[in-house]
Amino acid sequence: MNLMQLIINVIYAASIYAVVAYSYYFMYSARKFLNMSHAAIIALGAYLAFEIKKQLAWNIFIVIPFSVAITAIIAITVFLLIFKPLQKRKASSTKMLVASLGIYLVLQNLISLIWLDAPKSLCSWPVKRGHNILDVYITNEQILMIVVSIALLGVLLLFSKKTTIGKSIRAVASDSVLADVSGIDSYAVVLWAFAISSGLGGLAGILIAIDVDMTPTMGMNAFMMGVVTVIIGGVNSILGIALAALLLAITQHFGAWFIGSQWQDAIAFVILVLFLLFKPEGFFGKKVKSATV
């Protein structure tokens, strides 16, 4: 494999990590707990797109927004039915995590029941060989993922800096008590953050499924890499996430080049441990202060 091909592969992998990580970033900012159910939401987005495409035979670019919206609506329903009552009872982050794991298992098994476990493809068009540019191969699906991830970086940066909801989410992430007493309805903000995150999660699932096949458990691997990316990026920074995705992809791919691709996931978790040990605040995050109420 030549170096240029490796670089393209790195950019593609970084794009996947970044899109999944952006999707997780908003909900984690607003309500700090490891929401495992997001892994099922990623898969759900892909399967909903598969079903809509199969039933209505729409163009994939019309299928995507519909599936994203339905995914967000389902995720919000789950939030209102399970996370909201827990939040009202002031459940700890650990209890929320356990609940989210339960939701993940239920959703993932529902996906298995409805669509069965055999791999499915969103790609109804014939598989073509990628474009050959200067001896480097890249497929349309990979180009789509890279373009979406770069566009999302710009859109999300603008969203969080310029819109009221974006600023409110950042304020709640920075200090939720201060946000409350500043007149922000933090409950509504958390709801918005979950809707945005879930929609983006669905989008990430669809983009992954366009390139590779989908299975009911596909969301978990993507989710774990997304979480690693968010932690390395610093939990409060979209730009940090983009950088972390790139760092993760570079070390994984160059590492795999030298020691073998079976070590790719291990490399990612070694980087995570190194960051947790030596730079726990991530690239652009701040050291976490305990807030008093």
Binding site: S168, L178, S182
Partner: peptide, 20 residues
């Protein structure tokens, strides 16, 4: 307590949040 501000937000954004 302790003059809390939104550390990661700019001064202008802090003031904007006050009248969101």
């Amino acid at each position: 307590q302790g003059n809390r501000v939104f550390d990661e937000l700019s001064v202008n954004e802090n003031l904007q949040i006050g009248g969101i």
